[in-house]
Design a protein around this nucleic acid. Structure first.
Lengths: 138, 138
DNA sequence: GTCACCCATCGACAGACGTCGAATCAGAGG
DNA sequence: CCTCTGATTCGACGTCTGTCGATGGGTGAC
């Protein structure tokens, strides 16, 4: 299950710009990361770039996953226990399944503390996606 | 086939900030549009918001579609004929199928001029997606 | 230990999705 | 008119995916 790690490193090459929250995020050596993806308007994506980038968008392409992600992202303290976000209209196994997908896409990280499992947003991957969308909103 | 229109209007409520390209884009009356989606970190998305927003991400969640979109977005003049972007490794009907999906998601618009059909990026929807991702990359 | 609780995994199923070839539609030009 | 070319639609097929109930694994309390 090394998907999470590979997606996380995928991003870090994408940070052409400065990040103000470098204190919070672990700093990875650039040479260990594979390049992720330029803005979609810059040049046509290669097949591999598209394959890699599509996984991130696909992870947010399901309504339930999007709600779960939003619940974690907006939760107090930046993290949420599974029991806090299980009320999205699907069964508990399904919630677990979607959280796993989000984890595999590198969008969330999980940590067990005692009885509960806490999920937390991986900001770097979000930033990579935003960068891929380009500067339309500037 | 009113999907394109509804997605386009979905965005325009999202423009809390000024837009410099209002000359290019049609200006829609805000009261005719349904709100799209706040940043994912601001508050949990409702079911309808998630449903609507997920469609946009889903559209970019396929490698072939992502490449097609990138080909249009990066093409000279901001638009591309289908014949210019049909070399992505799938058959021509499949290309047409994916372009239709991107159109229905509001990400592309198409226009027939003589023999050829030209596709063009809809910048507003991209902006809405970027805004939904929040300010991680700022 | 035993029980209760939280969460993940398993197995199965229906529906959605990507893909193709064939057919069809739309213009341009004989 | 007919034909050629570009693009979409149709019908079919295999695969992927979201969902569930049942089961299992881990942790804390009694």
């Amino acid at each position: 299950m090394g998907d999470t790690a590979s997606m996380a490193t995928c991003f870090d090459m994408c940070q052409h710009r400065h990040m103000s929250n470098s204190k919070v995020l672990p700093v990875l050596a650039p040479e260990t990361a594979t390049p992720c993806c330029p803005p979609l308007t810059e040049r046509p994506l290669t097949a591999e770039e598209a394959e890699r980038t599509a996984k991130m968008f696909k992870a947010l392409g399901d309504p339930v996953r999007l709600r779960l992600f939003s619940l974690v992202a907006s939760h107090e303290g930046g993290e949420a226990c599974v029991c806090d976000i299980s009320d999205v209209g699907v069964s508990q196994p399904t919630v677990s399944h979607h959280l796993k997908k989000l984890r595999e896409a590198g969008l969330l990280t999980s940590e067990r503390r005692g009885t509960w499992v806490y999920y937390r947003v991986e900001p770097s991957v979000l930033a990579a996606m935003g960068q891929t969308l380009g500067r339309y909103s500037a």
